[in-house]
Design a protein around this nucleic acid. Structure first.
Length: 473
RNA sequence: GGAGAGGUGGCAGAGUGGUCGAAUGCACCGCACUCGAAAUGCGGCAUACGUUAAUAGCGUAUCGGGGGUUCGAAUCCCCCCCUCUCCGCCA
């Protein structure tokens, strides 16, 4: 959420920022709407003020037994009443319109973010390590996994459909080892507090980190605490359109049209959602609170499953487990004051990089361009790991600073010693790192000619000392 | 799933239609008293929005959230959310 007051003062800056993200200018419309809203609020408040004065006078008059004066005043206020009610309705309407527009605005990129339409404008910042040398042609992770009999997409498809996988034996354990290793690193050495958050969250939490309202349809799987039948019942009883009942009788529409319309009208406010990333529950830990400045920075880390519908990526990365509906990820979230967030982004990216360094994986850090960044981000580093089987770099982590964008939506603030007014915190999130993709990276980089996989040194304590998965048995 | 209780300022806790944005106590801040402190006394102490140079004044709204009744709602009505207790079920 961008501050409307800031927009009033910086309309050109906003429109320029939107342009870099490929969006049309809206500042003129926003400011007009805001001015109309404020003018309306002023009028309404004047009316309310008059009503309040009169009502108090009525109380006084009645108290002193002066019924005639009271009645005169009552008649006077009665005429104001309908104006106020209409005015309140209009205020709600104007508020909703403005909020809807503001909710749709992405964050303003920082000045040092490269301007560009898409990933072609991204800038490689650094490259760490070297591509491993293979005396043979390295295989892709799913070839290795399936040959080992420890990765089964057919079974997963029978149970859950496409974009799921089943890991077994050594690979299942390797995946678990990776998650444990990462979480331990961040909690033991990087100062993050370990958290086990809910993975099913409310609408408000999704709004706070700005997955909603804009990206609900495309990205996330919704859930309801109610059974399907009860839910349908509920929607139909509350939201069936009266006109549809008539049209149904006359055969103009069918039952399914009526149902579809009812669902269209039903609000989704109190739905539950499966998190697409632990960023959502971790960031929302500070929602609706004001904390002392010396409590900052707060750093949280969690290992959770993540759920994504991948609605917009049909046909991409369909083979293997690179892009799944469900995967595990270690997430880092930092909450800082308004001065430290940019430094914190560098620090956080370093924490994610440390995971790959210790795993001995080759990677590069990329600064995303304005057109490639996420909605809430002001600046984002992607970390791309080298996958020899694919012969390419693939994203394994994404670290973003969001400024006060999410804090405004969550109403998360802090107050310094001398501050009279609380300020919004700054929030950051980053993967540290995606566990499923780390498994792919380890498999492909540590593969041997016989199809076995050497376990990286740092993971062996988590593997019961196992040094190799599969192969020479 | 069944039955019940409850959500009021940082905390505790009054307030069932009219000068209530809200008694009182605690906490906190300032001042007085004191060599200093404690105790005591006096005063102050919510948030958001609008207006404004102002985090000054003024106005409006806010007693879990939203709607309604009324000239007037913390108080009455409706819907929703949350918390707690007991029983049942369950990892």
């Amino acid at each position: 959420m961008i501050d409307i007051k800031w927009i009033r003062d910086n309309p050109e800056t906003l429109d320029q920022a939107l342009a870099t993200r490929g969006a049309s200018p809206v500042s003129k419309l926003l400011i007009e709407l805001d001015e109309a809203r404020r003018a309306h609020v002023k009028r309404l408040q004047d009316l309310q003020s008059r009503r309040n004065d009169a009502s108090k006078a009525i109380g006084k008059a009645k108290g002193s037994g002066d019924e005639a004066t009271a009645q005169t005043l009552i008649d006077e206020v009665a005429t104001i009443k309908s104006d106020i009610q209409a005015g309140e309705a209009e205020e709600r309407d104007l508020d909703a319109k403005l909020k809807k527009l503001l909710d749709g605005l992405p964050n303003v990129p920082l000045d040092d973010v490269p301007v560009g339409a898409d990933e072609a404008a991204n800038v490689e910042v650094r490259r760490i390590g070297d591509k491993p040398d293979f005396a043979f042609t390295p295989k892709e992770h799913y070839e290795l996994g399936e040959a080992l009999g420890l990765m089964d997409f057919d079974q997963a498809a029978k149970i859950s459909g496409s974009r799921f996988n089943v890991l077994k034996g050594g690979l299942a354990r390797l995946e678990r080892a990776l998650g444990q290793f990462m979480l331990n690193l961040h909690t033991d050495e990087h100062g993050y507090e370990e958290v086990q958050p809910p993975v099913l969250v409310r609408n408000d939490a999704m709004y706070g980190t700005s997955q909603l309202p804009k990206f609900g349809d495309d990205l996330f799987i919704g859930a309801s605490m109610k059974g399907r039948a009860e839910q349908t019942d509920d929607v139909l009883s509350k939201h069936t359109r009266q006109a549809d009942l008539e049209r149904l009788k006359s055969g103009e529409i069918e039952v399914r049209d009526l149902v579809a319309n009812a669902f269209e009208d039903a609000p989704t406010e109190e739905e539950y959602w499966l998190i697409p990333t632990a960023e959502v529950p971790l960031t929302n830990l500070v929602r609706e609170s004001t904390m002392p400045a010396d409590a900052l920075p707060k750093r949280f880390s969690a290992l959770t499953p993540c759920f994504r519908s991948e609605a917009g990526s049909a046909g991409r990365d369909t083979r293997g487990m690179l892009r799944q509906h469900q995967f595990n990820k270690v997430e880092m979230v930092s909450v800082t004051d308004d001065q430290s967030s940019q430094d914190e982004l560098e620090r956080m990216t370093g924490c994610a990089e440390e995971v790959l360094k210790r795993l001995g994986l080759h990677y590069r850090v990329v600064l995303l361009s304005t057109g490639d960044m996420g909605f809430a981000a002001r600046k984002t580093y992607d970390i791309e790991v080298w996958l020899p089987g694919q012969d390419s770099f693939r994203e394994i982590s994404s670290c973003s600073v969001c400024g006060d964008f999410q804090a405004r939506r969550m109403n998360a603030r802090y107050k310094g010693e001398g501050d009279k007014q609380p300020r919004f915190v700054h929030t950051l999130n980053g993967s540290g790192v995606a566990v499923g993709r780390a498994l792919i990276a380890v498999m492909e980089n540590y593969q041997n000619e016989d199809g076995s996989i050497t376990v990286p040194e740092v993971l062996r304590p988590y593997m019961g000392g196992v040094e190799t998965i599969g192969g020479a048995a």
